[in-house]
Design a protein around this nucleic acid. Structure first.
Lengths: 235, 235
DNA sequence: GCAGTTTTATGACATTTATCACTTTTTATA
DNA sequence: TATAAAAAGTGATAAATGTCATAAAACTGC
């Protein structure tokens, strides 16, 4: 089975429903939908590799991707996850550098490709669009610096609690208080920045302490205030 | 002695010599120099605190500042240094958030303040300026993610070697191969993300191994290729 | 449904790194 | 320049975390 499948641009995709495109006028939106090409991507599919040249960005319509860097010994460090409404790969377009991360599909995704020139052109002609893109980047930078500090200063235990809460914020809990994303222990370790074994041990510790409940890859958060306390997370 | 001293805008400050202002036209440059107010800042002076609201940005004309975050236990994590030509504090202006870092003068500095509205206005009217600011931010984001991965995956020894090389790139060496910036061991530790004692021990180890020479806070790099190897630094 | 692969789990152990206590040296300041 | 304060340096020790080996469990593809 092909891991990528092109789909005709679907009129059901309402570009205006994505914050990032709010500032665009009719004409620009029309141009956008003309040049966008959308496709389904299966789990495991890689959109771009760290170090490769990217010629455009993707907007995520459906599904989840993980954005990660590979350390010199081959270990992944997950930088963030992208989901519905997120733009990926535009950093390299704008900075005019090679991709500094790899983007891999985690949950089957529908993505729309947007040529780089279109993006840079929109930035030039529409200052409101430029501003929202810039705002997006600046916020991401703030988060990156925050996480950098956490990794440098917090213990693995604190970081794991924090990551669970981060996943809650990003993907929500279902009615059952279970995280709406399922990751392998290794992926969790690659977010936290630790060894897989450490995550496994700490998760069962959290379970023993009745903070979470484990069911395979499903994690149910039982005591969020306590997790906040353990993770030293302030909002 | 006052730690801040206003200076009349100096015609000698050639705005065009700063990359970031390259795209501005005569009129915009004139407007800029009209609304800019410049001042000397002594070592130790804090421009803004993490968590405070910032109303403008500063462009560094002379001197060095350290930009850092404070962890929940009060430990500093140095995010970067700002020097001649660098813009500081604009992230918060654009993201419309409170300052996520503190900016402190390390080497006596001359800074020019630029009201936030002016900055956002320039972004609106001059797309070339918007683009360079965006490029700047995207590159910074790339670096932040890279360092995040390093802190998560490299040992303290590797990171210290890397930080020495980073300082070399940022501040150059003098004729004597000595780093042109002098930091306390604690500040080095706050860059590397480790304890001060660890930095002290590793520095003397590097010294024993003839990689560096120490003279108070002056660090002379004797064997750069070896430092690159130890730090697993690839360009 | 089975064989092979991947993931999870656990124990033992090694290594790295932090912490504490203290001395010496350097730097800043009255 | 005297004196206080800060920084650098060192050793002993504890704590956190990584690594390795191995087994059990859970998936996956035919």
């Amino acid at each position: 089975m092909k891991s990528i499948q092109n789909v005709p641009f679907n009129e059901d995709i309402d570009l205006l429903s994505y914050d990032i495109f709010h500032g665009l006028n009719e004409e620009e939106l029309e141009m956008l939908s003309q040049s966008m090409s959308c496709s389904h991507h299966k789990r495991g599919n890689i959109l771009y590799h760290e170090g490769s040249r990217i010629n455009g960005t993707y907007i995520v319509i459906k599904g989840i991707l993980k954005i990660y860097k590979t350390g010199f010994d081959g270990k992944e460090q997950i930088i963030r996850f992208a989901k519905n409404g997120d733009l990926i790969g535009f950093r390299s377009i704008i900075s005019d550098e090679l991709a500094c991360t790899t983007a891999k599909v985690v949950n089957e995704a529908l993505l729309c490709y947007l040529p780089g020139e279109l993006l840079t052109n929109l930035i030039k002609v529409n200052s409101e669009f430029a501003m929202s893109l810039m705002k997006l980047t600046c916020r991401e930078l703030g988060e990156s610096n925050k996480f950098l500090t956490d990794i440098a200063q917090k213990t693995v235990r604190e970081r794991l609690a924090e990551v669970l809460l981060l996943l809650m914020d990003t993907f929500d809990l279902d009615e059952d208080h279970t995280l709406q994303i399922s990751l392998t222990r290794e992926e969790l370790a690659n977010m936290v920045g630790t060894a897989t074994e450490s995550v496994i041990r700490l998760l069962s510790e959290f379970k023993t302490d009745k903070l979470i409940e484990l069911n395979g890859r499903k994690i149910k958060l039982l005591n969020i205030p306590k997790l906040i306390k353990i993770g030293n997370v302030y909002i």
